[in-house]
């Protein structure tokens, strides 16, 4: 656990525009906590990829689905918890997060599959738990300024 300097919790519905609004609220809280722009940019990208996946997969077909995001912003790290009441991950396990082949011929280039690769490249301690009432994903993000645009 980190000694949280501040904590922010956002609830949203299964909608890409709600994701935009939630990200604006979350990044505002990170800015207010004094994180450098590079760390905020990293957090925004990881949270966007996680929330897009929840909307597109876990809550696919569940228009009443709910998502809750909690950030505990500490001195060196931010711990994120993302909960949703949707379908479980396939195999109740995290995807591998391999990078799709970007050296293929132009017509064979991948148009998707980068989300989990980016999450696993930029977040640490990623854990997934299937709970009786939904999915819980937790991960840690660095607040370190030295982590300038990895």
């Amino acid at each position: 656990m980190n000694d949280a300097r501040s904590r922010v919790c956002v609830s949203l519905t299964a909608d890409q525009h709600a994701v935009r609004d939630a990200l604006a609220e979350l990044t505002e809280a990170l800015g207010a906590a004094g994180l450098p722009d590079a760390a905020i940019g990293t957090a925004e990208l990881v949270l966007a990829e996680v929330l897009n996946n929840v909307v597109e997969h876990a809550l696919s077909g569940l228009s009443q689905g709910r998502i809750e995001v909690t950030l505990r912003i500490g001195d060196g790290t931010t711990i994120a918890k993302v909960w949703d009441d949707g379908h479980p991950m396939p195999g109740h396990a995290l995807p591998t997060g391999d990078c799709p082949d970007t050296q293929a011929d132009i017509n064979e280039l991948p148009e998707g599959g980068f989300g989990w690769f980016l999450i696993q490249s930029l977040a640490q301690d990623i854990r997934y738990t299937r709970q009786p009432d939904g999915n819980l994903l937790t991960f840690t993000l660095s607040n370190d300024m030295a982590q300038d645009y990895p």
Partner: peptide, 27 residues
């Protein structure tokens, strides 16, 4: 890029730091 087809090249300019990183990480 695929839809525009082989006769026109899609190129990019003026990437900000956040955007440039996504391109770099995914190669």
């Amino acid at each position: 890029m695929k839809l525009i087809g082989p006769n026109c090249k899609l190129e990019l300019a003026g990437l900000t730091a956040n955007v440039e990183r996504v391109f770099r990480l995914t190669r």
